[in-house]
Structure formats: C-alpha cells, structure tokens
C-alpha cells in the first residue's frame, strides 16, 4: 500500500471511529435506534455486494440467511438465557444453510436467472413456513415462533462475561457500527487475497478460470457461504434493534437490498452501503412528511435514477471526479483519456 493510501485509510478509520462514538451523544434515542437498523441492513447489503458484485452470483436469497440468523438468535437467546452462545449458534445456522444451498446450486451448475429463482424461492419458502407458525404448537424449546407476529420479546445482547448485564441501545449501536466497519474491512481484505481475485475472475470469465484449472464451484461456494454468514450476522443485529418476524424473509426486504446494491453501484463496496443508508433515510423522511405516498415518491425516484444515472451513484461520482481531476493532473502529458 502506498503512503498516500495509508494516510487516506487512517483518516477514514479515524473519521468512522469518531462518528460512531460521538453519535449517541448528539442525537436522540430514536435516531440511534434507526441508525442501528441502517447499520445492520448495511451489513446485509455488503453481503450481496460481495456475492453479486464481485463473484457474479445473482443471489435473491440473502434475506433468507438474514431471517435465519435473526430467528436462530431469538430462539437460542430465549432458551439459553445468555446471548453469547446464542450469537455463536445464530452465526452457525445461516452459514451452514448457505453452504448446503450453495452446494445444491453450484454443483448443479445452475447459473444466473435460474440461480436467482432458486434463491428467491428458498426465501419465499422460509417466509411461508415461518408465517404459518402461529399457535402454541410451534415452538423450539421455550421460544414460541409466533407465526406472522414473530418473536416480540427477543432478549438483547449481554456482555459476554456477565450474562446479567444487558446492552443498552447505545451499546448496540456501537456493536453494529463497529461490526459494519469490520465487515467492510474484512471484505476489502478478502478481495485482495487469492480467493478474492479468483472470485473476480469467476465473475469476469468463469470458463477461462476453469481452463486454468480452478474449480469455479468451490470458489462460488466460498463466496456464497461467506455472504450467508454476513447476512446472518446482520440478522442477529436486526433482532437486537427491531424484532424477529417473517417480514425478515419478505420480498420487500429482498428487493430493497438488491435496489441498494444497484443504486450504490454493482461492483463496488462503499456505494451500496452509502445507498442503503441514504435510501432508508429518504424513505423514513418521506413517511414522516406524509406529503405524497412514500411508495409513489420512491418509485419515481428509482425510475428517474435509472434513466439518468444508470451505472450507480459511486461509479457516476467516480467518473465525475475523474473528469474534473484528470485534466488537472495530466496537464503535462498529451495523453488522451480513453473513451468510457
């Protein structure tokens, strides 16, 4: 890493840390809880940005792992009375499920649209199954699954070394925001490793990667499983700041994550995170203002976006940045910038 990159990275880390720590002291509780929700959804978005943007896997099923993580946490926390083993279990369940589903899909050589359909269908199956669990008959241990209403009283996380001390909303914000930063750093690191390069190679040209002797099924399985684990983690956070219900598996959430990745820029990491925060804030604000129907306004914004800024926010901003800075930087050379 060059010196300039190191400085920029250090500044970003400092800025992020500052924001995370200062935020609870300058805004009200309601905003903090919202921010926590956005942060957990951002991790979910990051998982799709990795799996789709960098490995080319059109997964409409990240919300399946999201919901499984949430439900696994709620059920485990209620039964164990301690959040630490609950978190461990809740990470295991979606990861395992992602591994199995991935094996099922990739060893069957299912690709693009058909892969999208299978992942979407799996999410839908989970939605319908969990939706039908109303009544006392449906429970796991001490935890009633609650059907459409979900599990309202999910125990919040407690300190790992002291199960009596439950975390406050501000603390959960710290955990969520830090986890988001760590997740981002992790994915960036992953993409710089050989496995990460192979994921990108698969996305660019799977056939050629095969001909070089790499098994694309294993690489895709790795990406898919890691993405599933991340989505599961976001589900655990979500369970701690909202509550667990079949809505976590809904088509609405599935589509929203996809929209955020596309708007943020497919093939980037920071863009989708940014888009996730931005669009949720816009939606919340529209709901508050109650000026026009929020769905209507959001829909029009999306359509306008596609027609005007199709490659996503980040790439468009990057291009604008390039257009402004390149001429300044290259005043000496006569080199012509290649056409976009």
């Amino acid at each position: 890493m060059t010196f300039r990159n190191s400085v920029v990275t250090a500044l970003c880390v400092a800025a992020a840390a500052a924001t995370i720590i200062i935020l609870p002291h300058v805004v009200e509780l309601f905003t903090i809880i919202n921010a926590t929700i956005y942060a957990s959804m951002a991790i979910l978005t990051l998982s799709l940005a990795l799996v789709w943007g960098f490995c080319g896997i059109i997964s409409f099923g990240q919300t399946a792992f999201f919901g499984l993580g949430g439900y696994a946490y709620a059920v485990a926390a209620i039964n164990f009375g301690d959040s630490t083993p609950a978190i461990a279990l809740a990470l295991l369940v979606p990861t395992l499920f992602a591994g199995l589903l991935g094996y099922f899909i990739f060893w069957g050589r299912v690709t693009d649209v058909y892969l999208g359909v299978i992942t979407l269908t799996v999410t839908l199956i989970l939605y319908k199954l969990f939706n039908a669990t109303a009544g006392d008959a449906y429970h796991i241990g001490k935890a009633a699954l609650g059907g459409f209403n979900g599990i309202p009283a999910t125990p919040l996380m407690n300190l790992p070394w002291d199960r009596g001390t439950t975390l406050e909303p501000e603390d959960i914000w710290y955990v969520a925001a830090t986890l988001l930063c760590l997740a981002y750093a992790f994915v960036r690191w992953l993409l710089s490793t050989k496995l990460g390069h192979l994921m990108i190679a698969i996305r660019e040209n799977e056939h050629r990667t095969e001909l070089l002797g790499y098994d694309p099924r294993r690489i895709k399985l790795a990406a898919f499983t890691i993405g599933g684990a991340m989505a599961g983690a976001s589900g655990i956070l979500f369970a701690n700041c909202v509550f667990v219900s079949p809505t976590m598996f809904s088509l609405l959430y599935t589509a929203q994550v996809i929209v955020w990745v596309i708007i943020g820029g497919l093939g980037t990491l920071a863009g989708p995170i940014f888009a996730c925060f931005l669009l949720q804030m816009i939606t919340a604000e529209l709901g508050r203002l109650n000026w026009l129907n929020p769905n209507f306004v959001l829909g029009i914004i999306l359509i306008a976006f596609v027609l005007l800024m199709p490659s996503g926010i980040l790439p468009t901003l990057q291009r604008m940045y390039d257009k402004i800075t390149w001429p300044i930087l290259l005043q000496k050379s006569v080199r012509k910038r290649p056409a976009q």
């Binding site: 660019e204 040209n205 095969e210 002797g213 694309p216």
Partner: peptide, 30 residues
C-alpha cells in the same frame, strides 16, 4: 475441464478467452 487442466493441459481458445476487465499482469498471476 478443471481436472484436465490441473493434470497439465493448457489451451488458447480460437476466440480469445480473457478477462477483459483485468490487467495483463493479473492474467499471468492467476
């Protein structure tokens, strides 16, 4: 194809099969 490639066969296809978005060095490195 994967197992045969691993056994020591390499092919340059009739229509070049490359990674259009990656740099030359990346290709060789992969």
């Amino acid at each position: 194809a994967v197992s045969i490639a691993r056994r020591g066969m390499g092919i340059k296809t009739q229509v070049p099969s490359l990674y259009d978005g990656l740099a030359v060095r990346e290709h060789i490195r992969l």
